[in-house]
């Protein structure tokens, strides 16, 4: 991982759901994720990591692909929460389609419903330590 990215990793959190509260709780003073040089951004072009969490429908899935396409390389993907890792708790019939899985390769999975902020931070720190090839 290039040192510039390693010391300033920007996260883009897509979707809506209960996991988002726990992800943003990591930016608070108790967990203080920014001490590792990790920031949240709302612009896909500026981000290095796409965090997928929460509930999606077809419209949400197509937007996710758009966000991913707008991100510049190197880029990584983290899937947070049961709804993305396994199946949607409230809509078990919904699955990301095959085209989506071909385009987006998830590097880290954070299980839990929702996972605690510590679990999310652990995944980010693992990413910093040993980033998968992109």
């Amino acid at each position: 991982m290039k040192s510039l990215v390693k010391n300033n990793l920007n996260l883009f959190v897509a979707g809506f759901g209960c996991c988002k509260q726990e992800i943003f709780a990591a930016s608070g003073p108790v967990y203080d994720i920014s001490r590792f040089g990790i920031n949240f951004t709302s612009i896909p072009e500026e981000s290095d990591v796409l965090v997928i969490q929460g509930f999606y429908n077809k419209e949400g899935q197509s937007r996710l692909l758009k966000y991913y396409a707008r991100m510049r390389e190197p880029k990584w993907v983290i899937a947070v929460g049961k709804c993305v890792v396994d199946c949607n708790l409230l809509n078990k019939s919904f699955q990301f389609d095959d085209g989506f899985r071909e385009i987006i390769n998830v590097d880290f999975f954070v299980p839990g419903c929702p996972p605690r902020p510590e679990a999310f931070m652990y995944a980010i720190l693992r990413l910093l330590e040993s980033p998968p090839d992109y």
Binding site: N57, G60, L89, L90, F94
Partner: peptide
Amino acid sequence: ISRVLPQNFNKDSSLFDLQTS
């Protein structure tokens, strides 16, 4: 974007499942 639930959701489901979700 937020209409994620299927039409048959919460129909004929067990009370136990519903209570947890």
